[in-house]
Measured scan of single mutants.
Amino acid sequence: MGFKLLSKLLVYLTASIMAIASPLAFSVDSSGEYPTVSEIPVGEVRLYQIADGVWSHIATQSFDGAVYPSNGLIVRDGDELLLIDTAWGAKNTAALLAEIEKQIGLPVTRAVSTHFHDDRVGGVDVLRAAGVATYASPSTRRLAEVEGNEIPTHSLEGLSSSGDAVRFGPVELFYPGAAHSTDNLIVYVPSASVLYGGCAIYELSRTSAGNVADADLAEWPTSIERIQQHYPEAQFVIPGHGLPGGLDLLKHTTNVVKAHTNRSVVE
């Protein structure tokens, strides 16, 4: 069995187990497998329904001669939608809004960016022009300005110390501490036991640490421990890039980060 097929099978099995364990909360999309990078042309966006009122959005972007996937989250909030992270750029984010209108038909009224990198804030200006209120932590807003990236308009308070959590509509926002970046936030959907790890969490097929220019490698494993301790009931975990899975993604990420750190020390 090929690795790609095995990865998709694991996603399907995880979703099936969740649907059985929580039949009222989960209505997993039966329309197909989780979209992969090879299936999404740059400039297009796919939506994948995880649970009743919960979707991931998947886009792709060219970077350094390669094409990478990027995940975000959409959560229903009454007759409105909360968006977590842009679709990595203005063109993708405009396509995301169009796809949401086509498939869901509810307005996106608020959006949260989970850290300051372009795959999370690139497209904020498109959201703002569409009347979406954009939010991020003060740290993310400051770092985005320093980096020359787009800056969300509103500040999220109460997320300055490791372990801080605040309720934001249908989700809980959690600051686990520094990891992929010093400002990275985690998003949890309690009604569906869905954990969105953003770039602080890796997919299972990833074996290298990737972009760690703004990471705190020493603190990252401790931050992941905080996530595990705060959300032990999480059933569906979405990484910032690639295929979702279960809580095993947290341990896998820790292993990859520690291996990278150990290699760096040896070198």
Rank of each mutant, 00 (worst) to 15 (best):
S208T: 14
V132H: 00
L97E: 01
A179F: 04
E267Y: 09
V132A: 06
S139V: 13
L173W: 01
V108A: 06
D248A: 11
A130T: 09
P176G: 02
A19D: 15
L5N: 15
R206T: 15
A213T: 11
A130C: 04
L9F: 10
Y68M: 09
A215Q: 07
K258G: 11
Q235I: 12
V126I: 09
G131Q: 07
S16Y: 14
N71F: 00
M18C: 14
A66F: 15
S27R: 13
R167Y: 10
E80L: 03
E219V: 07
A192G: 10
D77W: 08
A218K: 13
A19Q: 15
Q228F: 08
G245K: 01
E33K: 12
A213Q: 11
T254A: 14
E147L: 11
T182F: 15
L217D: 04
R142C: 06
V42P: 14
D214R: 07
A133C: 06
L10K: 14
F26H: 12
R120A: 06
S223P: 07
V75Q: 02
T222H: 14
F174V: 02
S70E: 04
L143Q: 09
A19H: 06
L173G: 01
V112Y: 01
H252A: 04
E101L: 07
L81D: 00
H252P: 01
R206C: 10
V37Y: 14
V166M: 12
L249R: 02
F63G: 09
L9T: 13
I50D: 02
V37C: 08
R226Q: 07
T140D: 04
L204W: 09
A136P: 04
A179G: 12
H180F: 00
I40K: 05
S56P: 09
G122V: 07
P244C: 02
L143D: 01
W88S: 02
A144N: 03
T60I: 09
V237K: 01
A178W: 07
H180R: 04
S62Q: 07
R206Q: 15
E145D: 12
S162D: 11
E203D: 09
L243K: 15
L97S: 01
S205K: 10
E99Q: 14
A66V: 11
D64K: 11
L5E: 14
T182E: 13
V67C: 06
V265N: 10
H154C: 05
G123H: 01
A218C: 06
I238D: 01
I20D: 15
V189Y: 04
Q229E: 13
A200V: 07
E99F: 08
P35Y: 08
A94H: 12
S160F: 09
D183L: 01
Q235N: 09
N149P: 04
H180E: 00
E219R: 07
S62Y: 07
L97N: 00
G65F: 06
R120C: 05
A19N: 15
D125F: 04
N184K: 01
D85F: 00
S38R: 10
D29T: 10
A90Q: 11
